[in-house]
Amino acid sequence: MKAFYETRQYESHVKIWHRVYRNLAFVPHWHTEIEMIYIREGALEVTLESESVRGTKGDLIIVESGEIHYSNIGKNTNVLEFIIFDPAIINSIFKGFNLKTALLTKNTLKKSQLTKHLQALLYTINYEVKYKNKFYDEIIEAELRKFCLLLKRNAAYLINDDQPKCQRDRIDEFQSFLDYLERNYSEDISLSDGANYLNLNTSYFSTLFKDYTGSTFVRYLNAIRIEKALEYIQKKEQSIIEIAYDCGYNNIRSFNRVFKEFTGIAPSQFMKVANQDEYIYKIRKSAHIEHTEEFENKTILNLNGSV
């Protein structure tokens, strides 16, 4: 299955992402985060690597780290609440959930005595995000960790520790390379270097990279470099030429060409843009197909957090 690698920008050092959408559908993708989808209204059909599930109001769908998943576009009328978070939040205690099924029905949540804890989690996130009082991020993280621990304990009968759902070795290995790109974007990294990193032939690596990220290797690396360039320009500590070289470009002409390809403007014009963060947020998306933030049927809702 072809799917793209989804990257995410967080609003704070606590890597928890929360949104509520009406009538949202999403194309095949994967990410390193764990994803929880609570169905507030209607229904949602989701296909994962290992199964297809259909949830209705009150159900919770959990997508493990690295699992390719998508919904049946155009066939869902719903209100969905998403909680997507860095697995590191729970990895110090356990690695993933390894659930036998991604779908936790309303009855399963009740049987496992998780309904009130899920309600507390959703309420806490909505309340704390709305008011942003001191330590609000840490409070959300603590409530999320508590729910995950209770899920692991109370729903032990749904957990299959002997056979994890995802092909972890494959995902971990590829993620390791993507992390390598994030750290070493300024170096001269070729397609062959990437293939050697994963011990693959160049042709297969090129195909695998496109399948996993929805982008060619060169375009993805350029996206990282331009993101970094935008951040450097915002700091106003270096000249454009210095930034170009620090981001892996050997000449200013190549840098200007790639910069304009991703942003639509020249670096000198970007320095005068009022809302520069909008450009940074969209760069990585332009390296692959658009996803949730750009869906035409998207409507973001504000809810009070009640289940």
Rank of each mutant, 00 (worst) to 15 (best):
T299C: 01
Q175V: 10
Y10T: 08
H18L: 08
T216V: 07
C247M: 07
I93V: 15
D162L: 09
F135Q: 10
T299I: 10
Q276V: 02
E293Q: 08
V63C: 11
Y245V: 05
G96R: 09
T292I: 14
N23P: 08
F270K: 07
G96P: 07
A287K: 02
I233K: 04
L191H: 04
V46A: 09
R145C: 09
G74Y: 08
L118W: 10
G194K: 03
S306E: 13
V20W: 02
Y212K: 13
L200W: 04
E81W: 03
K146L: 14
Y281I: 09
D161Y: 06
A195C: 00
K110D: 10
I68K: 15
N78I: 03
N98T: 09
H13Q: 13
G74E: 08
K75P: 02
S268D: 07
S12N: 14
V273A: 04
L104H: 08
Y127G: 01
K235E: 15
F85K: 00
R19P: 01
L301D: 05
S192P: 00
L158G: 02
Y157A: 06
Q269T: 08
I241N: 12
F174K: 09
F94N: 10
K111Y: 09
Y180M: 06
I83P: 00
T108W: 01
K228I: 14
I159R: 08
L24A: 09
K15L: 13
I283A: 01
I84M: 07
I34W: 01
S215P: 02
T77H: 12
F295D: 12
D179W: 04
G248A: 05
A223R: 01
F174L: 09
F259D: 02
